[in-house]
Design a protein around this nucleic acid. Sequence first.
DNA 1: GTTTCTGCAAAGGTTTTGCAACAAA
DNA 2: TTTGTTGCAAAACCTTTGCAGAAAC
Lengths: 155, 155
Amino acid sequence: MPKIDDQARTKLESFLTSQGLRQTKQREVVIEAAFATDEHFSAEDLLRRVRKIDRTVSRATVYRSLALLVESGLLREVDLGREQTYYDPNFLEKPQHNHLICKDCDRVVEFEDEHIALLEDCITRRLGFRPATKSIRIEANCEELARMGTCRNRK
Amino acid sequence: MPKIDDQARTKLESFLTSQGLRQTKQREVVIEAAFATDEHFSAEDLLRRVRKIDRTVSRATVYRSLALLVESGLLREVDLGREQTYYDPNFLEKPQHNHLICKDCDRVVEFEDEHIALLEDCITRRLGFRPATKSIRIEANCEELARMGTCRNRK
DNA sequence: GTTTCTGCAAAGGTTTTGCAACAAA
DNA sequence: TTTGTTGCAAAACCTTTGCAGAAAC
């Protein structure tokens, strides 16, 4: 089973080729950093990780590469309700997942559910739209915080 | 049946009083502008509307009043996936509604659905959270655009 | 009279962009 | 060689904030 990272790298390469774009060592580094973990990250998070590998890569290049990775379908922007844009490296593996965001502790939990997917379909059609880029976001509160008065994710 | 605007004004007044805050003509104008329509708006949208009523109101005051209106429960921040924060004046009337956002034409449609509310509850609990500030956001594509090749909301 | 508010302008933080030098193909 | 890329610094945006004067209570 190939590492997700390799899969991503291959996909990016064919995207670049098909668009007449170039492979550079900066893009290599960015993709390596982006798929190093399965956590969501912001552009600045990624910049930090990238610079651990190669400290000469510029902020602008990270932002530009990010746009490329989204365009090529390797990353998805997710709206976690924070000020910054976040990126999700897990859509390659689980194209249908959704996010639950805890308003207390900022935890983000990914989930899949066939019932909600179906319902979403129905509602979407009923309203005259076309269910395509499925994306449901649930906001909730922290059970742990409510019961224990505290939560391991702080705040 | 009282106008929503009056209801909002009354609620704000008691909030201000209870917090030892003051009623000012600027806050009057902001609330008037905020509840003039049932559309979602950004801070800059609101500033424009406010200035049509009183052109001397500053940007800072609009931002500060907006925070106050959210705190007092009159407005809700909604995340429409755009760069700016948007505000929804319809939660006073329909505290349970959700949003469908068209990724093609940026249309926002509000909807309520008991089934999805229930499912959301289940999923939230199953994941160890507490369903509180219900908020589901569905992103979809435009049927009109797909079928006709164009859409009345442009883009 | 106090204390809160306001307007202004400056500052903050994230993301984008123009441009000259550089590197991939 | 040609054309796309990079790094830098500046710019662009939205939003927040410090402060002195103005306005509520």
